[in-house]
Design a protein around this nucleic acid. Structure first.
Lengths: 197, 197
DNA sequence: TTCGGTAAGTAAGTATTACTTACCTATGTG
DNA sequence: CACATAGGTAAGTAATACTTACTTACCGAA
C-alpha cells in the first residue's frame, strides 16, 4: 500500500527513530532492516508499508531533519540586512548544526549522494531550495555592492558550501571536536578578504 | 590465501578493470560481485583471492588511479616556485582530472568516505599524503610572504579542497560539462583575492 | 628426475539481507 | 450493518556477498 505521508502513525515514527539512533554508531549500509525493526519494536514488513525501500527511509529521515535545520538557519538570519553577515550566519549555523547533529551531517554529506534516486527525493528538493536561498543572498550582496561585481555567484556558492562541508567532514568522520565560531571566522576571512598577502 | 600485492596476475587486473568499467554506468552499491566476475571472465571466488571484500576491491582500484592522479599533479607543479601558482595548478589539475575521469571522482568523493575501513586503507594513506603536500605548499606560501600571515593553513586547505570538490560534484553526478580553466580562475580569484567588494 | 610447495583459478556451496505476499484486526462511516 | 481502510503481523523468496574445498600448472631444490 502506498503511504501518502499525510498521517504519521506511531510505527512509522518508531522506525524513523530507530534508524536515526542506529546510525549514531554505524553507517547506513551496515544497519540492517532486521535491526531497524527490532529496535523500533515492529516487524520488518512494516518498514515497507511506509517506505518504498531502505534508501527511501533514509531520505525521509534526512528530510525531517533538514526541515528543522533549514528553519533554524532562516530564524537566525531574520532581521539581518547585510548579505555578508547573512552568509556568515549560514556558515556558522550550518557548522554548528552539523556538529551538534552528526547523524544528520553524515547522512547529508556522506550517505545519500552516491545513489541517483536521492536526487528525485523530497529531501533533495529541500536541499535545492536551501541552496537557492544562498544564491539569492549572494546576488543580493552583489546588487548591494557588498560583494565584488564580476564574482560568479554560482562559484561563490560552491566555494562556501564546499568549504563548510569539508571543514566539518574530518571531525564528523573521526568524531573530533570543533570550534564553530573560530572556524566560521577563519573561513569567512579567507572567502571574503582573500588569502593573498 | 593472502595476496600481498607484490604480483599482479591477469585475473586480478581483469577484476579491477571490470569494476572500473561497470562503475561508469552504475554506483558501487548496485554493481554485484557476480557482474564483476562475469565481466572479468573469471569466477566470483577469485575476487576473494585478491581482495578482502568488495569494498577492499574498490579501495585498491581507487588507490591505483590515485597514484596516477598524484603523479600528474606533481609533474605539473615541477619548476614552479610561487606557492599561489602551485595551488592554482593543484586546483586546475584536480578539476581536470575529476572531469576526465569521473569514475575516479565518484569513487573518491562519493563512494568510499561513508565506511570507516576506508580510512585504514592504502588509498586513504595516498590521499593523506596528497593533502600533506598541499599543506606544505600553503605553509611555504606563508613563509614566503605570498599568503597573508595569520591565515590558518589547515582551514585554507579545507577551503581549497572543499571548493574544488564541490565545484565538480554537480557535474559529476549529473554528467554535465565543465570548463576547468574558467572554474579554476573563478575559485582562485575568490580564495586568494576575496569576494568582498 | 622427481618431489613438494605455492600461485592462479574453479565450482559449488551458505548465511544473510532486502523486499513481498497474504493475512489479521480494529475502527469509523455511509 | 456492511465494509472499506489504516495499522500492523508472519512467513516467505530471490539475490548477494562471501567461504570452503578442490584442481592445475609452474618452479626451485634434493
Amino acid at each position: 500500500m502506498k503511504h501518502k505521508g499525510q498521517t504519521n502513525p506511531p510505527g512509522r515514527q518508531k522506525i524513523i527513530n530507530a534508524l536515526t539512533e542506529l546510525m549514531g554508531t554505524k553507517d547506513f549500509q551496515s544497519v540492517t532492516t532486521a535491526e531497524i525493526a527490532a529496535r523500533a519494536g515492529v516487524t520488518e514488513g512494516l518498514i515497507y508499508k511506509y517506505f518504498k525501500d531502505k534508501k527511501d527511509l533514509l531520505y525521509q529521515v534526512l528530510n525531517d531533519i533538514f526541515i528543522q535545520f533549514n528553519q533554524s538557519v532562516v530564524e537566525r538570519m531574520a532581521g539581518k540586512v547585510s548579505a555578508i553577515e547573512k552568509l556568515e550566519i549560514i556558515i556558522r549555523a550550518s557548522i554548528e548544526y552539523y556538529t551538534a547533529n552528526r547523524v544528520f551531517a553524515r547522512m547529508l554529506l556522506l550517505e545519500v549522494r552516491n545513489t541517483q534516486d536521492y536526487f528525485a527525493s523530497e529531501a533533495y528538493a529541500m536541499v535545492k531550495n536551501y541552496a537557492r536561498n544562498i544564491l539569492d543572498v549572494i546576488n543580493d550582496g552583489i546588487g548591494r555592492g557588498e560583494i565584488r561585481r564580476g564574482t560568479d555567484p554560482y562559484i561563490l556558492r560552491k566555494v562556501i558550501l564546499g568549504a563548510m562541508e569539508h571543514a566539518c567532514l574530518g571531525e564528523i568522520i573521526f568524531a573530533g571536536q570543533l570550534d564553530a565560531k573560530a572556524i566560521t571566522q577563519a573561513i569567512s576571512n579567507i572567502i571574503f578578504n582573500g588569502a593573498r598577502a
